[in-house]
Amino acid sequence: MSTPRRVLVIGGGAAGNAATILLRRAGIDVDLVEAKDDWNATAGSGITLQGNALRVLRELGVWEEVKAAGFPFGSVGITAPDGTVLHVQRDLRTGGDDLPATVGMQRPRLQQILIDAVRAAGATVRLGTTATILDQDATGVTVRLSDGREHRYDLVIAADGLGSATRAQIGIADKPEPTGMAIWRVAAPRPAGVQHTDLAYGGPAFIAGYCPTSDTTLYAYVVEKNRDRASIPPESYAEEMVRLASAYGGAWPEITATITDPAKVNYTWFDRLLVEGAWHRGRVVLVGDAAHCCPPTMAQGAALSLEDSWVLAQMLIASDTWDDELLQAYYERRIARVRPVVEGSVQIGRWQLDGVRDADVPGLMARTMTMLRELP
């Protein structure tokens, strides 16, 4: 690279942290701003990381820590609502044969590993800070931070999530749309017999499942048709999740006995977003949930976000010219991979909402996962 470069990353989630680590490793100056004072270090219950996510985490240099903190496994069980195991399916190793098919993790633990890696990389981090795009030209972007100071950057990477303020600031009108489903999530102790994800279809919910996240923990979830959030007071969250989950057998009675604190239960609608045409305007470019999101029916949200940052960083590092052509090439490389995952994830949910009993969910999943095994 012929001249020093300076990049602003807006958002300190998985995508923003990954972009920061990779660019700093290449010697590029990076400022990272995150709106939350705590850097989201305690948010969330659990996360399912499939092989293609693990592949990027290995590139970030944190794979050994992830492996030690998480729970690797290689199959998924399909059960009846009463807990009877109907089938155990081996998962495809989308990250290659030298990585597990899946690792379950406590989401705060993954975030802390990435935070530590960002700090070690030497990025400038400003927490409790937002950014406003003031203007830009062919050479860079002028940004005002919420502390009132203005800065000039060669590139701005918007990794500020599903409700991205940056996306709107640069004139991209796309917004997330609800798919009609919602999910209850909670972290809980792991019953000894839980060795992989189990999914029960039917009963009072569309899906009741859980994923081990360490030797001692798991996260459990129940998916239903979305309801008006205003009709569910937060103090009832534990009661509501227990009401739904109590219809399920197997490990569920042991899990539901621990769901007592409504503050530890999360209720979220499923959304869909896929920005079309380009993920940039000038020298401001979207990554992760700011550009796309989908229901977690394929457990690919974090993986696609991590891939975005990996691909974009590779392209930026390899080029002396950061221009419209380069950023459009990034979009075209990613959209071909992201679109089938977004559309497939939404389709699985639609089949459930519509009560389609002969839907080819296994076939759709197999085709998509086979595609994801290829390098992004």
Rank of each mutant, 00 (worst) to 15 (best):
V311I: 15
D308G: 12
D261Q: 14
D289N: 11
Q300M: 11
T256H: 03
A205M: 06
D323C: 07
W252G: 03
N266K: 12
G209L: 11
E325I: 05
G250M: 06
A257S: 05
L316D: 02
V285R: 04
W252P: 00
T256S: 00
E276A: 12
G202A: 07
A299K: 09
R283P: 00
V265I: 03
V242T: 05
A245K: 02
Y210S: 03
S309N: 12
V284S: 02
M241F: 11
W279D: 00
H292C: 10
A318K: 14
L218G: 03
W279S: 00
T268A: 13
G249V: 01
L218W: 05
D228I: 12
E240F: 06
R227C: 02
W252D: 01
S214T: 04
S305H: 09
C294L: 14
P262T: 05
T213W: 11
D324L: 02
G250K: 04
Y248S: 01
T321Y: 09
D261H: 14
E254Y: 07
T258W: 10
A220Q: 07
E224I: 15
D320S: 04
Q314C: 10
W252S: 02
E224D: 15
Y201E: 00
E276C: 03
V265M: 05
Q314T: 12
G209I: 07
D289G: 05
R281E: 12
R243T: 03
A238Y: 11
Q300D: 03
I232S: 00
L316N: 02
T321H: 13
P296Q: 11
V275F: 11
L304Y: 10
A263K: 15
D271T: 15
M241V: 04
W310F: 14
A303L: 09
M315Y: 10
L274S: 06
G282I: 09
L274H: 12
C211E: 01
A220N: 04
W322T: 00
A230K: 14
W310Y: 15
P204L: 03
E276W: 09
R283Q: 05
T256C: 01
T268V: 14
E325N: 06
I232G: 00
D320V: 06
L312W: 13
E239W: 07
V285S: 00
S305Q: 06
V287S: 01
F206I: 11
R243N: 03
D308W: 14
A238C: 10
